[in-house]
Amino acid sequence: MKLKTLLIGSAITMVIVPMVAWFLVKPLRVIFPTLMPGVECPRANVCTDDIARLDEAQKLYEEGYAKTVTVVGAFQGAPRMVFCTTQACSDAFGLGQRAAEAIGNLGLVIAPRGWKQFYIAHELIHYRQAESLGNLAVATKPKWLIEGMAYALSGDPRRPLGPPFEQWRSQFEAWHAHIAPNELWRAASEVR
């Protein structure tokens, strides 16, 4: 009887936990974006809520991807990106006021105001960080490394950024100036 109860409890947990996460942790919706109303994925790695803007989204994806590979190396996998054209779409993924967000190495969501190459590159750098350092490291390493790298290497034209972002970018740039290009991920993994 105990085994049966344990199995039933485990089965219920395996169903309920993902459902609760789906409803409470909206960014996780990037895993299955087509379950969101109006979102389609007509290309393997590009999804949008407005198919009329698919070519524009694809071009931004390709430009951001190429820029990111140039500055932080090749991706291990091809990131999926959801391009929202409406605030309702952004809200469905829990973006709030953010222009874009990388959900670790699960995917990226781009808000209507985030349809700029430097925002895309910024979030792709975060995705690449998660691939190379791990999702936990991205959440726990110093902000000057994680956010500073994304601001410094994405080509973000905004100078100066507001505090503390400009300080993080400056600190990363000073650290990065002493790192050989092929040593970026090794050196980043050693930062505590």
Rank of each mutant, 00 (worst) to 15 (best):
K2R: 12
K4Y: 14
K4R: 15
L6Q: 10
A11R: 04
I12Y: 10
I12G: 01
T13L: 15
T13Y: 03
T13P: 02
M14I: 11
V15K: 00
V15T: 01
V15N: 00
V17W: 00
M19F: 13
W22P: 01
F23T: 06
L24S: 14
V25A: 11
V25C: 08
P27G: 01
P27M: 00
R29M: 00
F32H: 05
P33N: 05
T34F: 01
M36Q: 15
M36E: 14
P37E: 12
P37H: 12
G38N: 11
E40P: 07
E40Q: 14
C47A: 08
C47W: 05
T48Y: 12
T48G: 10
D50A: 15
D50H: 11
I51C: 02
I51S: 09
I51V: 13
R53G: 04
L54I: 09
Q58T: 13
K59P: 05
Y61V: 08
Y61W: 10
E62A: 15
G64E: 09
Y65V: 06
A66E: 14
A66N: 12
K67C: 02
K67T: 08
T70Q: 15
V71Q: 08
V72F: 04
V72W: 00
A74L: 06
A74H: 09
Q76K: 15
P79M: 10
V82S: 11
F83M: 11
T85K: 00
T85N: 14
T86Q: 03
T86L: 06
Q87C: 03
A88H: 11
C89S: 08
S90R: 04
D91I: 00
F93K: 06
G96W: 08
G96K: 08
Q97C: 01
A100E: 05
N105R: 14
L106T: 01
V109R: 04
R113W: 05
R113M: 10
W115V: 09
F118A: 14
F118Y: 15
Y119S: 10
I120Y: 07
I120N: 09
I120V: 15
H122V: 11
L124P: 02
I125R: 03
I125W: 04
H126M: 06
Y127D: 02
R128C: 07
A130T: 06
A130I: 07
E131I: 06
E131C: 08
S132Y: 11
L133C: 03
N135W: 05
A137F: 08
P142G: 00
P142L: 00
K143R: 13
K143Q: 13
A152D: 04
S154R: 10
G155E: 04
P157T: 04
R158C: 06
P164F: 08
W168Q: 10
S170N: 13
S170D: 13
Q171N: 11
F172T: 04
W175T: 06
A177H: 05
I179R: 05
A180K: 13
N182Q: 14
N182S: 13
L184F: 09
A188K: 08
A188Q: 06
E190D: 07
V191Q: 12
R192D: 12
